[in-house]
Amino acid sequence: MAISAALLTGAAAPPPTVEVSVSGLRSMKGQILVCLTTNPKAFPDCSKDKGSVRMAVKAAEAADFAVRAPATGTYAIAVVHDENSNNKMDTAIFLPKEGFGFSRNPTITVGPPSFKSASFVVEHDIRQSIKMKYML
């Protein structure tokens, strides 16, 4: 009985990994700020979600990097090309001066896309390719 109980409670599988590739950077300056969240109300600004995964990746390494999802679930990713490395998106008259992108590359009209249009299900390791957009 102890052996079967050990098998049932054995080591859990590691959390899934989201492999991310970012294309269309206008320069290799600065860093890419990454936000991975399951919270629609915190998208695309992860600062409102304590359970989000936030990280910075050097722009020169943004072609391919990994983000560890905390668990399986429905996630969305937002990225910002923080060219001057000040850890925020700079704006001019409410328009982003730096590049941005989202998982599933939804169409951008006015304002950021909805969580639903950028979300994807993570049940196992998965890949997302994000194309950067620049307004100015």
Rank of each mutant, 00 (worst) to 15 (best):
S114Y: 11
K88V: 12
M55W: 00
K116I: 15
I108T: 05
Q31P: 03
A6P: 08
S103I: 03
I93H: 12
A42D: 08
T9E: 12
L95K: 11
A60K: 13
G24N: 13
G24T: 10
V110S: 14
D45V: 12
R26G: 02
D82V: 02
G101S: 01
N86R: 10
T91Q: 13
I3P: 06
A60H: 10
A12N: 06
P14L: 05
F100C: 00
E123R: 06
P16V: 02
K48H: 12
G99M: 03
K41R: 15
N39L: 11
T74Q: 11
Q128M: 04
S103Y: 01
K48A: 15
F100D: 00
C46G: 07
P113H: 13
D45F: 11
F120V: 13
I93S: 12
K41F: 12
D64H: 15
P40C: 13
F120R: 14
R127A: 15
E123S: 06
T9D: 10
M132D: 04
S129V: 04
P112L: 02
V53F: 02
S47T: 02
N86K: 14
A66M: 10
G101Q: 01
N39P: 10
N87Q: 13
D82M: 00
S4C: 15
A66C: 08
K41E: 15
S117I: 07
M55E: 00
A69V: 06
R54W: 00
G101A: 09
A66W: 05
K29C: 08
F65R: 05
F100E: 00
M1V: 15
Y134R: 02
G73W: 05
I3C: 04
T9G: 09
M1P: 14
P16G: 03
G24E: 12
A63W: 06
L33G: 11
P113V: 14
A118D: 07
N86A: 11
G73Q: 05
P106Y: 10
P106T: 10
T37I: 09
